[in-house]
């Protein structure tokens, strides 16, 4: 038997259903492509939260600001082709806030570490000690594993199925 794998995208996604005799807010049911399709580029919208930890959806379209975090983060490309540019931070430049990504005012003046070009299904390390920028020639979507931080956006009532 030949199988057909269903992988969604910004241009073609279908949200599932939630039919529960319960308060649907407890399940925070959303869809990363739906969230990205209604988000401005590079808004980092939380779609999952485990206390201080979050997963953020980001619509990538053009050049992002530069970000850095005081810990490792990880990005999974859900749609499109995205380039991740990396700059090494001096020890004094590494953010010292509790967690999550912080947006930098400009490209840091450290040495260029290199770049990663990633497509759907690729997981990219955003290492502690590096600043990173995302660029894409066409709209794409990434899911970022990180902590609740200065640029984490929360709009649960907008993104979740509540009835």
């Amino acid at each position: 038997m030949a199988y057909k794998t269903h992988v969604s995208s910004l241009s073609a996604f279908e949200k599932g259903v939630i039919e529960l005799k319960d308060d649907l807010r407890k399940y925070a049911f959303s869809n990363v492509f739906e969230v990205a399709s209604h988000s401005p580029p590079f808004e980092r919208t939380a779609v999952a939260q485990n206390l201080e930890y979050v997963a953020e959806v980001m619509r990538v379209d053009g050049e992002s600001p530069w970000y850095a975090a005081p810990h490792d983060e990880f990005a999974i490309v859900m749609d499109g082709e995205i380039t991740f540019n990396f700059v090494k931070l001096a020890d004094a430049q590494v953010p010292s806030h509790a967690g999550g990504a912080a947006q930098l005012g400009a490209k840091p003046n450290g040495p260029t570490m290199g770049r990663v070009r990633a497509r759907r299904g690729h997981q990219v390390l955003l290492p502690k000690g590096a600043a990173y920028q995302l660029t894409s020639a066409a709209p794409g979507v990434v899911l970022v594993q990180t902590m609740d931080g200065p640029v984490t956006t929360k709009r649960w009532s907008d993104i979740c199925t509540l009835s």
């Binding site: 992988v7 996604f13 939630i18 039919e19 399940y27 869809n31 779609v47 859900m78």
Partner: peptide, 13 residues
């Protein structure tokens, strides 16, 4: 309590 059908891209607690 019911059911949830999750499709590609869906997120649920």
């Amino acid at each position: 309590r019911g059911r949830i059908v999750m499709k590609a891209g869906d997120v649920c607690a």
